[in-house]
Nucleic acid binder design. Structure first.
Length: 420
RNA sequence: GUGAUCGUAGCUCAGUUGGUUAGAGCGCCAGGUUGUGGCCCUGGAGGUCGGGGGUUCAAGUCCCCUCGGUCACCCCA
């Protein structure tokens, strides 16, 4: 009997795991500068939390969610995206506004795996709940883009759109529906019938039939109501003031139904696969109410895919968590307890130390020392123990010196600082 | 969910028209005399050829099923 990780999941070892750890750490320090706190919420929720937020009809909910009933018969679902849980937690605990949270979480979607797409993937995200100010939109986008730049990713495209609100979106939807209806037969096979379900989806379709039809379709930006339009203008103005490049993308339609007004997506220019979206987000001014919170509680947020960030880093040859070699490798020719004890003492001084658990010959231990990439080796056997003098060998030059045990930490620190 | 493609040692791969005990490189382990690594040399461990069934005197090599990987569509991170 042998087991393997479920389809679309994987075990992430070093060095990738280190990269992911470093990404999370960098993200944390960046967004904490802006006053966001980490929120850790459950990986599964009442099915309705996700169904009502992303939208019953959305692809993610209707065909990709991991749904199960627990032993008490409750309908639950594994988190397919980050926002819904944050909003639910916000409502449940009646947090004061503005509520600002960040998270790093796995997300689960029952998909067919392929490049940059898994059934369990990992996301970083941010949410601000309680303000409708365009400042939030600007702040969120600024954080998303400067995070990317801080890790050395600059060849990305920021697409920005406004989805309108409950006043103007229905009107637009009608206009689009009318237009598509009149061109129904020219649409691609898939959309000839489906366009009625969600006409906005057609805008996003890459089939040539659809793109040629939607080329002349009514666009949302021309139909925004006064409030949405000025909100949108403010946001774009803010981006310009921050010198954040963006492309207005009136056909950008994102997968969750909860979006209102600002939506955006960041696509990498260095991924040639079709999975080039590395992050996205938007405003969700009606979501809090939809999940049972106070009405008129707006919100905005974004999420980024860690796996995709890793792909982009690799594509650009960027190393954000280079392999660390130990400062010191112990070559112990005496008893077994000397190594762990000496290692412990040195590590308490902040020196990184490794050694072989199984004591082989000196040659074997020296080989390990070499392979570990350690800067120094400390060699000690019978002779050294008797004289109280330990050998310190510079593994790059081969130079050896002897130091009394009592002064070994200082000697090591001094050598390390000299070598750099 | 649909389609394409692949699946031989830890890794990257060879394995001729089906034919004797399945190979290489790298990695790993151990040696190259008396306590010293990196280069080099020698040796070793490690594979039910993804799994199951079938065809055949004989299958890693052909057929079917199945499980996985990869890629594309759909959709998304």
């Amino acid at each position: 009997m042998s087991f393997q990780a479920p389809i679309g999941t994987r075990d992430i070892f070093a060095p990738e795991s280190k990269t992911i750890g470093a990404l999370i750490a960098k993200f944390a320090s960046l967004v904490e500068l802006a006053g966001f706190d980490l929120l850790i919420s459950p990986l599964f929720e009442d099915y309705e939390v996700f169904a009502r937020s992303a939208g019953q009809a959305s692809e993610v909910v209707s065909k990709e969610m991991y749904v199960f009933s627990d032993r008490g018969g409750r309908e639950m679902a594994l988190r397919p995206e980050g926002t819904a849980s944050v909003v639910r937690a916000f409502i449940q605990h009646q947090n004061p506004t503005p509520f600002k949270a960040w998270y790093a979480t796995p997300a689960f979607r029952y998909e067919k795996p392929q490049a940059g797409r898994y059934r369990q993937h990992h996301q970083l995200g941010l949410e601000v709940i309680g303000s409708a100010s365009p400042s939030c939109d600007i702040e969120i986008i600024e954080l998303a883009t400067s995070f990317l730049k801080s890790i050395g990713i600059s060849n990305f495209t920021l697409l920005v759109n406004s989805m309108g609100d409950e006043n103007c979106r229905p009107l637009y939807r009608e206009a689009l529906l009318d237009y598509l209806g009149s061109k129904k037969t020219e649409l691609c096979q898939d959309h000839q019938d489906r366009f009625k379900l969600n006409p906005l989806r057609v805008l996003d379709c890459k089939k040539p039939e659809c793109t040629s039809v939607t080329k002349d379709a009514p666009m949302i930006d021309a139909m925004l109501c006064q409030e949405c339009s000025s909100h949108h203008q403010e946001v774009l103005k803010g981006l310009s003031l921050l010198a954040i490049d963006f492309i207005s993308a009136p056909r950008l339609v994102r997968g969750f139904d909860y979006y209102t007004r600002t939506t955006f997506e960041i696509q990498s220019n260095s991924l040639d696969s079709s999975q080039n979206a590395i992050g996205g987000g938007g405003r969700y001014d009606k979501l809090v109410e939809k999940l049972g919170g106070k009405s008129e509680t707006p919100g905005i947020g974004f999420g980024m895919g860690l796996e995709r960030l890793v792909l982009v880093l690799e594509a650009n040859g960027i190393e954000i968590a280079p392999k660390q070699s130990p400062d010191v490798y112990l070559v112990d020719l005496s008893s077994n307890l000397n190594s762990p004890v000496l290692a412990g003492l040195l590590r308490r001084c902040g020196i990184s130390v490794d050694y072989s658990y199984e004591k082989g010959s000196m040659k074997s231990q020296m080989r390990h020392a070499n392979k570990s990439g350690a800067t120094l080796a400390i060699i000690f056997g019978q002779r050294e123990l008797e004289r109280g003098l330990y050998k310190i060998k510079d593994l790059a030059t081969g130079e050896e010196s002897e130091v009394p045990l009592t002064a070994i930490e200082e000697a090591i620190l001094e050598k390390l600082s000299k070598i750099g």
